[in-house]
Write a protein that binds this DNA or RNA. Structure first.
Lengths: 227, 227
DNA sequence: CTATGGATAGGGGAAAACCCCTACACCGGG
DNA sequence: CCCGGTGTAGGGGTTTTCCCCTATCCATAG
C-alpha cells in the first residue's frame, strides 16, 4: 500500500506519472510548431491558445512543465506564473517571447521561471530545459507525497495527542511534558503511547522528523487540484 | 558568552555587524554617484573600479550587498557573481547596467542576483533592494553562526562518539545502536553519555537537531575569509 | 618506559520509560 | 439512554536508561 498505482502501467498521478508539457501560445503556427517539437521527443503535450484557457482547467498537471509565450490576449506570461503559484502549483515555467524587455525577464525570473528564451531559439535548448524541469517536478512531487503521508498520519491523532507529540519532538521527557502541559505524567504516557502507535513510530526522533516533513511541504496539499 | 562582541560598539564581525555596500563600477563618475547615494542613507561603502580589485580582497564582507556594473574591464558582472559563489560568499548582488541584454539578465538572475536594474533607475528602488538584501544577509549570517556553533561542538567528539550520535539521531535506542555498530550496549551507553555531556544536550532529539543544523549550512565555513 | 586518552566491557542501583490493566468524567450520536 | 471516543489518572511489572564505579587493551606522546 504505497498510494501509487501499479508499476506496470505508468500512473496518471504521482511522482512517476508521465510528464505533460503545457504549451501556452496564442499564435497557432508557433503553437503547433512547439507541440511538434516537444512531441518529437516523446513528451505528452497540452496546448492552449491563452493562459486563461489553461488556468480554467480544474486540475493542473503535476509532473511536467509549462512553456508559455509572454504577450498574449488576456493573462500574460508573467500573470500566468503568478496565478499558477497562487494555486500552489509548483510547475516550472519556461517563458519564450519575441519581444523581450529586461524588466519582464527579471520579473519572470523573480517569479520563479526556470528560463526566459528569446525567439528564435535553438530547439535543443528548450528540450534540455524541459528535461531538467520535469526531473525537478518529480523530486518535488516525491517530497510532496512524503509530506502528505506524514501529514495524514498526524491527522489521525487527537488534538491532545498531537500536542504531546509536539512537545515530545522538542526533546522533553514524559515528566517534563507533563509539567509543560500541566497534566499527570501518567496521562502523558497514555497519549504518547497511543500517538506513537497511531504514527507507527518508536521514538521521539522519528516523531520530530514526521512533524518536520509534514510542515516543510505544507503548501503542497497532496496534489489536490493537481494530477 | 555569546560569541558576539559588546552590544555597545557594533562588532566588525557577525550577524550584527554594520552592513557594508560594495560598489563595483569602472566609471568613476557613476561610482562616486553610487557611493554618494548609498552613503546618504548611512551605509558604509567599499568602492572598487573593477570586479578583480574587489575579488583581490582577502576577506569579503559578510553583512551587506554588492552593487555591480555589468560591463567592465576584466571580470564582468556575471563573472563576479560566479566568483563570489565559488568563494562561498552568500553576499547578494544587484546588477546595474546601461546596455542590458535579456540573456545577461536571465543569466544573472539564475546565478542568484537579487535584481538587474537598467540605467537610469530610481534611487529609491536601489535603496529598497539594498535594505532587503542586507536583512537577508543578517538572517543567513545568523544561521551560519548557529551552524558553526553546532559543528564546533560536534568536533569535540571522538570519531566513535560521533558515530554513536549519528545512529542515535536516527531514533534507535541503545540496544539497537549496539547491534548496528556491533559493540556492547554498555559501550554504547558510555559513548552516548560522554557525547551528550560534551554536546550539553539531554536527548536524542536535540542531537538530531544539532546534526541537522551543522550540516544544513555546511558550505558556510564560519566566515573564514569573510567579515 | 610511562603517561595519557580512547575504545572496549561489566556491576549495581536509582530513575524513567514502556506496557498491560482498571477507572471515571464528559460529550455527542444513534 | 446508553455507547463510543476522548482526556484524565492510577497500579503494577518489565525493560531501558541513566549514572556512579572498576577494568583491560591499545596506540601515541612525552
Amino acid at each position: 500500500m504505497t498510494g501509487l498505482a501499479d508499476a506496470a502501467a505508468p500512473p496518471a498521478f504521482g511522482p512517476t506519472a508521465a510528464p505533460r508539457i503545457v504549451i501556452v501560445e496564442d499564435d497557432a503556427a508557433m503553437r503547433d510548431s512547439l507541440v511538434w517539437l516537444v512531441e518529437s521527443v516523446g513528451h505528452e503535450t497540452l496546448a492552449y491558445e491563452s493562459a486563461d484557457a489553461f488556468l480554467a482547467e480544474a486540475r493542473l498537471p503535476c509532473i511536467g512543465c509549462v512553456v508559455t509565450d509572454m504577450r498574449m490576449p488576456g493573462t500574460s506570461g508573467l500573470g500566468l506564473i503568478e496565478k499558477l503559484r497562487a494555486r500552489q502549483s509548483l510547475l516550472p515555467v519556461v517563458v519564450i517571447t519575441a519581444f523581450a524587455s529586461v524588466r519582464d525577464a527579471v520579473t519572470a525570473m523573480q517569479l520563479g521561471a526556470v528560463n526566459f528564451l528569446e525567439k528564435p531559439f535553438h530547439d535543443q535548448d528548450l528540450l534540455d530545459l524541459l528535461n531538467d524541469a520535469v526531473a525537478e517536478t518529480r523530486d518535488t512531487a516525491r517530497a510532496c507525497c512524503r509530506a502528505r503521508a506524514a501529514a495524514e498520519r498526524l491527522e489521525t491523532l487527537t488534538a491532545r495527542e498531537l500536542e504531546v507529540m509536539r512537545v515530545m519532538a522538542e526533546g522533553l521527557r514524559n515528566k517534563e511534558i507533563a509539567r509543560a502541559l500541566d497534566i499527570s505524567p501518567k496521562t502523558v504516557e497514555i497519549h504518547r503511547q497511543r500517538a506513537l502507535a497511531k504514527l507507527e513510530v518508536g521514538s521521539a526522533v522519528e516523531v520530530h522528523r514526521l512533524l518536520e516533513t509534514a510542515t516543510d511541504a505544507a503548501p503542497c496539499t497532496a496534489f489536490r487540484d493537481f494530477s
